[in-house]
Nucleic acid binder design. Structure first.
Lengths: 230, 230
DNA sequence: TTGACAGGAAAAATCGTTTTTTGTATCGAT
DNA sequence: ATCGATACAAAAAACGATTTTTCCTGTCAA
């Protein structure tokens, strides 16, 4: 039998594990946007009972990944151009606000965390033929953006940014699966943001971050528009 | 038997009704901040079974009114000075951002909604001896602030603002129960904001709104500081 | 042909019970 | 006397079964 876990990650219950599994399934596109979530079928495929499944879905409502209507059950949140535009707009405002604060009051530990997150992300080769590396890069990418702003010490704002990041990742992972980053040098953009942050150059870092988010958003909007009106 | 509802408010299930009841119980201070929520006891006092209770609490997690830990159950979210400071700061940023957008693209219907919400709020006499009027004013006050920014057509941002407003109301309703508005003329502040909004004077309206939120926040912080260190 | 109505299948919501985990108090050993 | 292990009680989590609601389909009448 497997020995007891050395570290308690605080995800001991079915419901909490399901939240992560469902989020990943939705963000990765495994569960199609706008589709109904049949509870009985989901119960079977995830191998759990209805109570924890229901609880996990309820927690994902406020994350914007799941929508709910009384007596009509749960659905995967739909995607739209206006939704993507709003996400991009809010990411610019929120993440820049958080980064400016982090640069103002972040500790030395935070600086180190940023550089480590940057390094780990850049070490991954994004080989489209092996989806595994892509998914790992996605995880590190999310981690980088969250670490960058984590120094601001504003839990509510960090939570909002995390929500927006998940919503944004769903668009990226459905469109940029095979062409990560488009024609831009994303690695360089990340590098400039991180360098500016640890150098405490708020204006430079925030401008780079805003441009980075805006470019990504424009990129995704083009892909989505092409898909909706081929 | 009661006839069928003329309007379907979409709150037909136990769980959905419980979300509202629990939110009201927490925001009103009926459930003390930081206290454990005993499921068995709550089941009894609310007259429902465990499944919908659990589901309702799960939905309130991301609203920031409830915190959860695996195998240790649900608790009412604690209050703190730093939490109040963050709420105030974010309300300034978010609501001003939304108001500016609403003034830019809001329809004539939106203008009418704002004036109606203002009027209804001002018609209520806030008589401290009758708690009923205070609660009704609170509801109209929340409605006013949400209506003011509703014209921006940014569902995610509106949701975030609603979350922050609920969190903020909890502080106000615990401290300003007997001294609504302090020594300020709150009605005049609301009037100026609304007038500026429908006149499409973005700079004026946004400045007044920011001041309004900031003053309320400072006011509450003083009350909370007094309570924590008497 | 179209519209309303009824019946049945499917899905969701709720409940009561069982299992698992946690916190606590007691007992024993060093 | 202090520390550690163990047993007991209370709370939370998960499950299976039951009830309620909705959705789909086929029928009948206008």
């Amino acid at each position: 039998m497997p020995g007891p876990a050395l570290v308690d990650d605080g995800k001991n219950t079915m419901a909490s594990q399901l939240v992560d599994r469902l989020r990943e399934a939705i963000v990765s596109g495994q569960l199609e946007a706008g589709s109904k979530i049949n509870l009985e079928r989901a119960r079977g495929s995830f191998g759990v009972s209805l109570s924890p499944l229901r609880e996990a879905l309820a927690r994902l409502i406020s994350d914007g990944l799941v929508v709910f209507e009384d007596n009509r059950g749960y659905r995967v949140a739909p995607v739209s151009l206006s939704n993507l535009e709003e996400i991009t707009r809010l990411r610019e405002e929120f993440e820049v606000l958080a980064l400016r604060q982090a640069i103002a009051i972040g500790t030395v530990d935070w600086e180190g965390d940023v550089m480590r997150a940057l390094h780990r992300m850049n070490r991954i080769e994004r080989d489209p033929s092996t989806p595994d590396t892509l998914e790992r890069w996605e995880a590190y990418h999310r981690e980088f953006h969250l670490t960058l702003i984590a120094g601001c010490r504003m839990p509510l704002l960090l939570n909002f940014c995390g929500v927006l990041l998940s919503l944004n990742d769903r668009y990226r992972r459905s469109f940029l699966r095979r062409t990560p980053g488009g024609d831009r040098n994303v690695a360089q953009e990340h590098g400039e943001i991180a360098q500016g942050a640890v150098a405490r150059d708020a204006d430079f870092a925030c401008d780079r971050l805003r441009e980075h988010i805006h470019r990504t958003g424009t990129n995704l909007q083009r892909h989505l528009a092409d898909k909706l009106a081929p």
